[in-house]
Amino acid sequence: MDVILFLVFAIIAVVCAINVVVQTHPISSAISLIGVMGSLAVLYLLLGAEFIAAAQVIVYAGAIMVLFVFVIMLLNAGAETRKGRSFMVQLLGVPLLIGLLGLLAYFVQRLYLPGVTVHFGGFRGGTPLDIGRALFTTYLLPFEVTSILILIAILGAIVLARKEMD
């Protein structure tokens, strides 16, 4: 059961991620990205990270993607046309991509950490209770600093997107 869940949602995530990159219209990319976020939330549940899975759906698939779709609609960006790529890129692109993929796979294989078997309910450390306790005791200072970061981001977004008043 866990194997089927993992395989189905991992394949959905990878296919949607490829779709994000190959689609020419930004709205199609955004819809595919929502698919990636949703399937990753299921994979987080499988790992026992319940709070992160909920946050993934609410924050990523909800807030961030609405922001993206809103900006795409606002800018009315049409489909993107392909530009002729240079000869070097056409010649070297695919071999270098395969090389990078091979290097990455080699290091993942080499780094063969204690491969813990993942099954549903095998780890119960990610409940909102545990997360909240750690966040408000051990990690209180980073938590407060993060609130300042968000404040700066809000101010920056307002200042950047504001229309210049004469």
Partner: peptide
Amino acid sequence: SRIWHNMDGQIFAIFVITDAVAEAAVGLGI
């Protein structure tokens, strides 16, 4: 976090999500 049965990694994941939100907001503003 799952391998070492330690949830510090999940706390870091929350901070990364927060960063992603801030980055998306500022990036789209730019």
